[in-house]
Amino acid sequence: MTIGRTALKTKAALLAAAVLCAPQVASAGPADTYYERAFMVAADRRCGLFDARIDAALGAATAQARGAALRSGAAETDLSATAARARSRAHAVSCQDPQLATVKGRVDDAFSGWLRTPRMTFPGERADWIANRMRSAAAGWRLQQTSIVGASPVAFGYAGEGEASELVAVVSFVGRSRPTGARIVLRDPNKVPRAWLAGDGLVPASSRASLWAADVAPASRELLAEGRRTGEVWRFPASTAAALERLDPRETFAIEFHFRDGSVATAKFEAGDFAAGRAFLAMGML
C-alpha cells in the first residue's frame, strides 16, 4: 500500500469517527483532526478496540495531529480542553454502539498501512525527525534529527541494534579537543509554563532544565555523519524523552558539549514531532 492510499484511508476513518464525536463539524481543520484522533484513543482505552500495534499507530497519528494544530496557531490550553472534550464524548458512547464498530473497522483498515510503513519523515518548521523501523543487526538510527556546531555535525535521537535502541547524541568534533560532558538544555515547565518561542528560540539560562548524559563511548561508524570516520556517542537517560515530549513542537532545545577549558559548544534542535516519531517506532521493527 502506498503512503497516499494510506492517507486517504486514514482520512476516511476519521470522517467516520467525526459522526460519533463531532457531527456538527463540516470540514476538519488541524484542531478538529486532533479532536477526532483523541476521541478514538480515548474510546480505545475504554473499550479495548485495537491491538497494541494499531494503538501505537493511532498514538503516532494523534501526536502528529497535535503538532499540526499547534503549528497552525492553536493554543496549548485550547488543545488540552479539546482532548478533555474528546475523552468526555468517548466516555458517553456505548462500547456496543454500531457506529463505533464501523469506525473501528475503518481505523483498523486505515492504520494497517502504517504498520507496513518502514520509514517516515515528520516535518518541522526548521528541521525534520526521520524515523526508520527496518530491522538491522548493525547499529543504526531509529529516530534522528541532525544539527551542527561550528564545522562539527551532531545527530540526536534513538539508535541501536536489532530491537534495542537508546536515546543518544553522536558528534564528530573537528580537531583534537574532546568534551568532558554533555547535557540537554530545554525549557523548565515549572519556571516557564508556556511554550518559549521568542528570540533565538532557546529559553533564557535562568529558566532552563538540564539533563546530563550518562556516559560516552566511541560511536559506531554506522551512526556517523557522511564523510566522518570517528566520533563519540553520548547516552542520555530514558527519562529524557518525557521531558522532550512536554515541549511545544515549535520550541528549541539544545545539546551543550562542555570542554575542560570551560568552553561550551551548543547544537540546537527543534522539538517538532518527536512524540509522533517515538509512537511510530512503538509499532515495532520490520
Rank of each mutant, 00 (worst) to 15 (best):
A52R: 14
R53S: 10
I54S: 01
D55H: 14
L58T: 06
A60Q: 09
A60M: 08
T62E: 14
A69I: 08
L70I: 08
R71V: 09
G73Q: 07
A74Y: 02
S80F: 13
T82R: 08
A86Q: 03
R87E: 15
S88Y: 09
R89D: 04
H91T: 12
H91Y: 12
A92N: 05
V93T: 12
S94E: 09
Q99I: 14
T102H: 13
V103L: 02
V103F: 01
G105R: 06
G105S: 08
V107T: 00
D109G: 01
F111W: 13
S112W: 01
G113S: 04
W114M: 14
W114H: 13
L115Y: 01
L115P: 00
P118V: 04
D128I: 03
D128E: 12
A131D: 11
R133I: 08
R133H: 07
A138W: 06
W141A: 03
R142D: 11
Q144F: 10
I148W: 11
A155I: 02
A159H: 05
E161M: 15
E161R: 15
G162N: 15
S165R: 15
L167F: 10
V168W: 09
V168K: 00
V171D: 00
V174S: 14
G175Q: 11
G175I: 00
R176P: 11
R176T: 14
G181M: 04
I184T: 04
I184N: 02
L186D: 05
L186H: 05
R187W: 00
P189Q: 06
